[in-house]
Computed example of a mutant assay.
Amino acid sequence: MKRMDQAVIDAAIREITAPEKEGKGNERVKEIVNRLVKDLFNAMADLDITSEEMWKACDFLTQIGQNNEWGLVYAGLGIERFIDVKMDWEDEQDGIELKTPRTIEGPLYVAGAPESKSYAELETVPEPNSERLYMSGVVRDEEGNPIGGAKVEIWHCNLKGLYSIFDSSQPEYNLRRTIITGEDGKYEFKSFVPVGYSCPPGGSTDTLMALLGRHGSRPAHIHFFVTAPNYRKLTTQINIEGDPLTYDDFAFATRPELVPHIVRKSIEEAKVAGKDEAHAAIAFDFNMVHDNAELVPGENKRSRRASSAK
Rank of each mutant, 00 (worst) to 15 (best):
W155K: 09
A306R: 09
T236Y: 03
N129V: 12
M135Q: 05
I9A: 02
V33R: 09
R81W: 15
N230D: 15
V296G: 06
Y197T: 05
C199K: 03
R264Y: 05
H290D: 11
M209G: 10
L175N: 03
K24W: 06
K265T: 14
A253Y: 14
T227N: 06
E69D: 03
K151R: 12
H290G: 03
V110Q: 08
K21G: 14
R35F: 11
T50R: 07
N67W: 03
A111H: 08
A43R: 13
I64D: 14
S191F: 07
H279R: 09
S204L: 05
N174K: 04
K190Q: 06
R140M: 13
K233Q: 09
G242R: 01
L47P: 06
Q63N: 02
R304D: 10
D141V: 02
W155D: 11
I9F: 07
K160R: 10
Y247C: 12
Y74P: 10
E241T: 04
N26E: 05
F224A: 00
E22C: 09
T50I: 12
K310S: 15
N239Q: 15
A280H: 12
F82M: 10
K190N: 08
G65S: 12
V85Y: 06
L159I: 04
N287A: 13
L212A: 10
G112I: 02
V152N: 05
G203I: 00
R305G: 06
R305D: 11
R264K: 13
Y231D: 04
E142N: 08
G23A: 11
P101E: 00
F284M: 03
G274Y: 05
M135S: 13
K151F: 10
